[in-house]
Write a protein that binds this DNA or RNA. Sequence first.
DNA 1: GGTCTGACTAGGT
DNA 2: AACCTAGCCAGAC
Length: 108
Amino acid sequence: MTAASSYERIYAVVRRIPKGRVATYGQIAELAGLPRQARQVGYALAALEDTRVPWHRVLNARGEISARSDPGPERLQRALLEREGVRFDGQDRVALARHLWQPRVRRR
DNA sequence: GGTCTGACTAGGT
DNA sequence: AACCTAGCCAGAC
C-alpha cells in the first residue's frame, strides 16, 4: 500500500462525513481499511489541499480538536464546526455521544 | 536498515 | 476527570 493510495482512501471516507457531524481519527482509519493507523489520518489531513474534503470534522477520541505541532489551524477548525452547528463545551470539547457520525455499514 | 517523529489511543492510577 | 505511560505504525532520514 503506497502512501498516496492510503491517503486517497482516507480522503474518501472523510468526504462521507455529513455536515454537522464529526468523526475520530481512529474511526476514519478503521473505515478506510487501515486499522490502528489513526496517526496516518492526521498526516493525510495535514497534507491535504483539496478543499472538498471536510478535514475539520475529524477530532481526537476525546472529542477535542487535536493540537498541531505548528499551531494555527485549530481556530479555523473550530469556527468551521460551529458554523455547521457543532457545539463545544466549556472545556473545548464536543459531545461525541451527540455529534459522532455513525455511518451505515457498507456492502459490496 | 536502525532511529526518530508525531492532527493517535487504550488502559491504569 | 486529568494525567501518564506504553503501544502503535508509516514516513523521512
